[in-house]
Design a binder for these strands. Structure first.
Length: 849
DNA sequence: GCACGCCTCCAGGAG
DNA sequence: GTCTCCTGGAGGCGTGCC
């Protein structure tokens, strides 16, 4: 008999991490999920305080009397809330109900939010429960005598000391933010974020299913047999189940010796055993389990006659979870753009398990010839286990980086960890803001109340169809520049939000006397009487990251584990802060407020423009700049310091030295440059040669050229390098002309961002190729299409369908020319003369000679 | 009929 | 389903020329 990883809490619980919350529709109560790190179990706790769902109305209880006849209405209660938009108290009626569906159900004639104008009726019940009880997911709690109690680990002295230093640094509080309220927030954040993150016990699993050629099995029907199930646990479990099928070769066992393999005669027995393993772990990890593995297993189990009570899974509208444990679908987590860019620095380009694994952990899926169904049983086992192993490794590399990040973001967003892993930044920030509203008894505004503010934009975007103007990009100074300093403003937009007190309720506030506190370049003004909620929340997180965690993560007196935590916290803050401005300008964000986003970028442009003027006035040449960065040509330390000090006192922003380049090459193009740092490291920005869709042979040539450039130290060496570069390019050009380049290396790799049929306005090249591919296999959005350019008809063909003799070499030469001109033109080199083509006729001559 | 210029769509990237 | 700014390739369409 296996012991379950889960148990119901009766009366007591040792300190455990609050990880998730749900609603139990049978018991009609909120249920909390705790992870207890010593027993490594999930503990369930059902509310015993009688908390009930509710929403608010501005009608008084008398006017709402007609509701009291309903059985699902418990009571109507007078309440007073603070209305931030109008800066005054407001009387409301709290409508308390017995079931969340009474408020937000789909029955249009019954659900209260459909028949009345209501406030705070679009919040999930378990979220309400968390907010009302000031429960913070990711915090430790204990239970004594049936009562929930906060639990805090003590923080090392040197960490507390660093915090004090931050609070007494007066310079960090330029602006009108009230020091006391602001500093209380900082302390509260630090105490929460400094709590240790426990090791989370987990298992990953993966299933394989029989399938027809090119068809993806349907998880809803689950009519095909499950042939293998593999598991990989953080505790060292390595196990794979394989179904013996008639006519299948056994093959030879090439599994690593520590992997346990079991063969089954009956699929249903294999599934039952799989359920035993899954219930034995508090956390279950999958790759695409929401859409495939979990529903397939669930529906297949049902189809094979396993009773519902014996299936430990729960299917929801667009996700899947466990009755007791927590399910994290890594496909959902890694698809989050904020994670992809800010936490994992764009090391993977698409969201397939293989790309993510190659980019982050240098692992890949096992390749096989032919069909999966043709593999021997041992081969299948090996393939299947490898997927589970990679999936687990994606959560454990870098000392459990991903798990730790999720826990820390959970703390900031006050949101269950399974929701954090599935939802975007706008949802995280929504949750954080709702929590804060409840904490201070502020009424959360309805969308319509905020819409009035967003109706009028006062700036015009540079790009057509955009709502407001964004960051400023300085025209680069063309040429090669030696000894270049890159300065950047630390968290510019969050700094602006803090210093200018920006928030939905403070921008264009109701007070007449605030109207003279204007935002440059707009007709907006900002409140001078009250601190903005956004300014406090984002501002305090910004100060923590910039002044505290960045240095804590390098503090030599701390041990590795501690430093690790602070690095993770710093990264989590980076993710949140980078998104915080953007959501203010996103309609899907419930507190969307266009003037806040507009004011933020307007002040950003003002700040960088004024700083450029300041640089000029102290004699520094500014070569380029983009939004929050400045490229300075050979400034002295003193010059830099004077600008830094000026920016701090004038605007309250931190201007930091980001990089020193030995030299930088600019063309006339914005967002396009190449820089070589003092240690020879090459930075390439925006150039086509680097882009992921560029054919490998051009990208390889591009990187070889960068290799040459990284060696260059002086202007003389630079001239010498030109010869080498020329030789290299003409060598590749000759190969191309002679058709010696393998087809694979000629392929453009472009992602299809919607279903092929949805391209109606124009048919791009990769879609033309995809349509040819569709004849043999299914094409979904998110797939990467590999195609080559050919001479005939549509001009493109999928690589696997093309022949070497139909390649359009001239097209490739054109692409090479434009790609390398991006660097060559500003180095005084000409592509055509490099490859030995005559000036006038250029490419044509080169080709037909 | 076809070269061209102009605009739009699309993808990928910087910040 | 955070945002705007920028580049480059190709498709689509109208215009004017032969």
């Amino acid at each position: 008999m296996q012991s379950s990883a889960v148990s119901e809490i009766t009366n007591t619980m040792p300190p455990a991490l609050l990880v998730s919350a749900t609603y139990d529709s049978q018991k009609k109560s909120a249920v909390l999920k705790f992870y207890e790190p010593i027993s490594q179990k999930v503990l369930l706790w059902t509310d015993n305080t009688g908390h009930k769902p509710y929403c608010y109305s501005k009608l008084n209880p008398e006017e709402l009397k007609f509701l009291s006849e309903r059985k699902d209405i418990i009571k109507l209660e007078k309440a007073s809330k603070q209305d931030l938009l109008r800066d005054r108290a407001v009387d409301v009626t709290k409508i308390v109900v017995s079931d969340p569906l009474a408020i937000g159900g789909t029955q249009t004639d019954k659900s209260i939010r459909n028949i009345l104008e209501t406030w705070e009726s679009d919040i999930k019940y378990y979220e309400n429960y968390l907010y009302d009880n000031s429960l913070i997911v990711g915090k430790y709690y204990a239970i004594e005598n049936g009562k929930l109690k906060e639990f805090s680990y003590s923080i090392p002295d040197e960490v507390q000391l660093a915090l004090k230093g931050l609070l007494y640094d007066k310079l960090t509080n330029v602006g009108i933010i009230d020091t006391k309220e602001f500093q209380d927030h900082i302390i509260e954040w630090a105490n929460l974020l400094n709590q240790p993150v426990p090791k989370i016990k987990r298992v990953s699993f993966d299933i394989e299913v029989q399938s027809e050629t090119g068809r993806i099995p349907d998880a809803k029907i689950a009519e095909k047999t499950i042939t293998a199930i593999s598991f990989c646990g953080s505790d060292g479990l390595k196990e794979v189940f394989v179904l013996k099928l008639a006519g299948k070769q056994l093959g030879t066992n090439e599994l690593e010796p520590d992997i346990k393999i079991s063969f089954y005669d009956k699929e249903v027995e294999m599934i039952r055993d799989a359920f035993k393993i899954l219930t034995n772990y508090p956390f279950v990890i999958t790759f695409n389990g929401d859409d495939f593995d979990m529903p397939y297993l669930y529906n297949r189990a049902e189809r094979l006659g396993i009773e519902l009570k014996d299936i430990p899974l729960i299917m929801m509208r667009d996700s899947a979870t466990l009755k007791h444990g927590v399910h994290i679908d890594l496909y959902r987590a890694f698809s989050n753009r904020s994670f992809q860019i800010y936490a994992f620095s764009h090391k993977y380009n698409d969201f397939s398990l293989n790309s993510i694994a190659e980019g982050l952990i240098e692992e890949s899926k096992i390749e096989y010839e032919g069909e999966l169904d043709d593999l021997s049983l041992y081969e299948l086992a090996n393939y299947c286990f490898n997927d589970a192993r990679i999936t687990e490794k994606l959560t454990s590399f870098n000392n459990d980086l991903l798990m730790n990040l999720l826990v820390v973001i959970t703390r900031i967003g006050r949101m269950p960890i399974d929701d954090i892993s599935r939802m975007g930044v706008s949802q995280w920030i929504r949750s954080l803001f709702y929590y804060e509203h409840r904490k201070h008894n502020y009424l959360i505004p309805r969308r319509e109340e905020l819409e009035q503010k967003s109706a009028t934009a006062s700036t015009e975007a540079v790009i057509k169809d955009k709502k407001y103007r964004g960051g400023l990009v300085v025209e680069p100074t063309e040429g090669i520049h030696f000894n270049v300093f890159v300065m950047d403003f630390a968290s510019l937009y969050p700094s602006i939000i803090k210093v200018r007190n920006l928030s939905y309720e403070t921008v264009r506030c109701t007070h007449d006397e605030c109207k003279k506190n204007t935002i440059p370049g707009t007709n907006h003004w900002v409140c001078t009487k009250k601190n903005g909620l956004t300014a406090i929340l984002i501002g305090s997180l910004r100060d923590l990251r910039v002044n505290y965690y960045k240095s804590l993560s390098k503090n030599p007196s701390l041990n590795e584990d501690q430093k690790q935590l602070y690095t993770v916290v710093s990264q989590a803050l980076k993710v949140i802060l980078n998104a915080s401005y953007g959501v203010m300008g996103a309609e899907i964000f419930p507190l969307y407020c266009l003037p806040v986003a507009e004011a933020t970028t307007a002040v950003g442009r003002y700040t960088i423009l004024e700083t450029i003027e300041k640089c000029k006035s102290v004699g520094i040449q500014v070569l380029y700049g983009d939004t929050d960065s400045l490229f300075l040509k050979g400034p002295t330390r003193d010059q830099v310091q004077s600008v830094v000090n000026w920016a701090k006192t004038e605007f309250g922003v931190d201007l930091d030295l980001d990089k020193e380049y030995r030299y930088v090459v600019f063309s006339t193009r914005k967002k396009n440059y190449l820089g070589v740092q003092k240690d020879g490291k090459v930075d390439v920005k925006g150039l086509t040669g680097k882009k992921s869709h560029t054919p490998p042979f051009i990208r390889n040539l591009f990187y070889e050229i960068l290799g040459i450039l990284s060696e260059v130290k002086t202007e003389e060496e630079f001239s010498q390098s030109k010869q080498k570069i020329g030789d290299m390019i003409s060598q590749y050009a000759k190969k191309l002309k002679a058709k010696q380049i393998p087809l694979q290396d000629l392929a453009f790799n472009v992602m299809i961002s919607k279903a092929p049929s949805e391209y109606v306005k124009t048919i791009p090249q990769h879609i033309r190729a995809a349509k040819l591919l569709e004849q043999t296999r299914e094409i979904k959005k998110g797939d990467i299409i590999s195609y080559v350019k050919i001479l005939n008809k549509p001009g493109v063909k999928p690589v696997e369908m093309a022949r070497p003799d139909e390649i359009d070499s001239a097209k490739y030469m054109e692409f090479m020319e434009s790609t390398f001109d991006q660097i060559l033109s500003s180095m005084d080199l000409d592509f055509n003369s490099l490859i030995g083509a005559p000036k006038q006729t250029g490419l044509d001559q080169f080709f037909w000679n």
